[in-house]
Computed example of a mutant assay.
Amino acid sequence: MIIGVPKEIKNHEYRIGLTPAGVKELAVNGHQVIVENNGGAAIGFDNAQYIEAGAKIIDEAAEIFATADMIIKVKEPQAIECKMLRPGQILFTYLHLAPDPKQTELLITSGATCIAYETVTSPTGGLPLLAPMSEVAGRMSIQAGAHALEIAQGGLGALLGGVPGVAPAKVLVVGGGVVGTQAARMAVGMGADVTILDRSLPRLRQLDTEFDGRLKTVYSTADAMAQLIVEADLVIGAVLIPGAEAPKLVTKAHIKAMKKGAVVVDVAIDQGGCFETSKATTHQDPTYIVDDVVHYCVANMPGGVARTSTMALTNATLPFAVTIANKGAKQALLEDEHLLAGLNVAAGKITYKPVADVLGYEFVEAKTALSL
């Protein structure tokens, strides 16, 4: 199989779909990999490393899309990329279709077989291809939030960990999954006063044990949210419904009630955001202010630490990529129910129900779509 790795073109996105080590693994399995010129140069993976790993360097993305049987990316394809896809071609990347009707329409029109990293499952019920970027984004959310709290950034001028004689900042983490846990880990490590809200009592018990009393766990209710958010200096939005649009748990009224200069970081922005006042931003212009509250809503947060993120992502995606390349998409998908869960679009049909439901498309079972 010919596997194409184009350079990412989203604003300030420097990750790349495969590391040189990932290329070598596919080459060892008998596949040809073509990589766009300088696709990984910004993060220290130069053309020479890819060539040494067995790749061929291609100057134009259009040639990669025209030649490759499978396209491996990081971020969702931009409109110009969607239009270069063709029927039967495999697209393996993050998609986040629920809040993105235009991309969805273009992928349906393309006829490509589109497998979304974020909905591939694991035997233990996790999301193994989303987890590494959730870990990165969770940790980054505290780093970004702490910076935004500085007065020069519009924040209230609070140091997250405080100093002797001055209380630490209060951090509220909404959601106790991978993102929330990693955010809490960083915030606790910096000495902040941390509270996690979640609706799962078993998860709250796990977190209480894991952090050994170094943070507070609170069952999430409307009343709890209303009380805690007015006290918070930094709020991390870390909720996820796999493949579906994020619920708006923090309302405009909540934001209006927060203290002047408080900061909110919406890690769920890829799925539409969990704050009612959220809108996607970029690393170039990451924040804006609503009702005197600083909002950080960068839609590709892990892109800010692109080298670490690329290595972590390739570690997770590579076994699936090798399987798809070795067996072909149809056989690989039909033989692995967890990979099949990642199929979002095939043969011009929506094969992931939460996406179909939120965007108003007919839902077609994945196996049915693969037979068309």
Rank of each mutant, 00 (worst) to 15 (best):
Q143C: 05
L95M: 07
I115R: 04
P128A: 13
T121I: 08
Q103N: 12
A112Q: 07
L106S: 00
L95Y: 09
E135T: 09
Y117F: 15
A144F: 09
A144S: 08
D100T: 07
T119I: 10
V120M: 13
I142Q: 01
S134W: 06
I142M: 06
L97Q: 01
Y94G: 06
L106Q: 05
E105W: 00
E118D: 11
A116W: 06
E135D: 12
A137V: 00
I115D: 08
A146S: 13
L127Y: 14
S122C: 11
E105P: 00
A152Y: 14
E118A: 07
S134I: 06
A146Q: 11
L127Q: 10
G126D: 13
E135K: 09
Q103S: 09
K102Y: 12
C114I: 14
V136R: 09
G125M: 12
G138F: 06
V120W: 12
P123E: 15
P99Y: 05
H96W: 04
T113W: 11
A131Y: 08
E118K: 05
M133C: 15
I142V: 12
P123S: 14
T113R: 05
A148E: 13
P99E: 05
S122T: 15
Q103K: 03
T119M: 10
G125Q: 13
A144M: 14
D100Y: 00
A152H: 11
E105S: 11
Y117D: 06
I108V: 05
S141R: 01
T121G: 11
L97F: 07
E150I: 13
A152G: 06
H96P: 00
K102P: 00
G125V: 08
L130T: 08
P101C: 10
L106D: 03
P101T: 07
P132T: 10
E105Y: 06
P101L: 12
T124Q: 14
S110Q: 04
D100L: 02
H96V: 07
A112W: 03
S110T: 01
Q143W: 05
A112F: 07
Y94Q: 07
L129K: 04
S110F: 04
T113P: 02
G126S: 13
E150H: 09
G126C: 09
A137E: 02
Q143A: 08
G138P: 02
A152W: 07
Q153N: 14
S122W: 14
A112R: 03
E105H: 04
D100M: 05
Q153S: 11
Q153L: 13
Q103P: 01
L127M: 15
G138H: 03
S141Q: 04
A137C: 00
G145A: 10
K102M: 03
G126R: 14
L107E: 02
L106R: 04
P123D: 15
A152M: 14
L107D: 00
S110P: 02
P128N: 11
L129N: 02
T124A: 15
L127F: 14
S141M: 03
G145V: 05
Y94W: 04
P132D: 02
I151S: 15
L97M: 02
T119N: 12
G111F: 06
P132K: 09
T109E: 15
T119Q: 10
I151A: 15
Y94V: 13
G125E: 12
L129V: 06
G111I: 03
